[in-house]
Amino acid sequence: MLEVRGLTKIFGGLTAVKDLNFTLDAGEILSIIGPNGAGKSTCFKLIASFLNPTTGTVRFNGKDITGIGPHAVARHGIVRTFQENTSFQDMTVREAVLLGYQKDCKASLAGMIFRSPRARRDEREAGDYADHVLDMLGMTGLANTVSAALPHGMLRNLGIAVALAARPKLILLDEPFAGLNSDETKRGVELIRKIRDDGVTPILVEHDMTAVMSVSERIVVVSFGSKIAEGTPAEIQQNEKVIEAYLGAEDTEIGL
């Protein structure tokens, strides 16, 4: 489904991502882990075309989507979430989620403004889908709350909700559990499985190792921009290079 070949990004003198290769099959839960500053978010930005790679290609379902621009990538079916809390401040939860449906709206600009039958049908479909997404994330009760007033945990959820509303085939989740307590994280793990069962393939970047180990089917480990290991959670926990990279970065413990 996704094929990353020789992906490299150089910022001035700093190589943030170096010759990264990996592939992903539909329906698989893949995690990318690595110490702080390893280049994980940059890798997501390269896939989602928020940045242009220095060299390398990203192919999605056989099509080359390298550097075609964020909205074009989204229209191919890849939607990312953001590491920091990102939302439309003044919009209610439901309005934000409705907006996620935008790329599937079929009405023309004028049609939308003058409420053509097409636009009204779009709106109905968007509404139904938004309710479905909110229900899936357990946010139905918050539908009319302004985003800015949400607590942190719900804001992280909203990020995922908005991305899901865009009906992606592949969703790139950048630290979905950051700042969540263990209860919320547990529900998050469930959510990711549910998303996958719904036919959306997730890729995670995450620091919470317990969660990563329990949810992932495969893990890619990056350090200083390069891939240093790849395998099942069990393999990764045994991998010497990985332990070294994490110890070297004086990061928190890896694994269980």
């Binding site: 939607v79 939302s87 409705l98 907006l99 790329k103 009405a107 403004i113």
Partner: peptide, 28 residues
Amino acid sequence: LLDTSRVGAVFRSLRQNEDLASSLGINV
């Protein structure tokens, strides 16, 4: 009409967060 339509919502989303909007497939 514009402001209350979907186009208006898209415009408002641009003011609040262009990156998020473009990640949703909106041609900013």
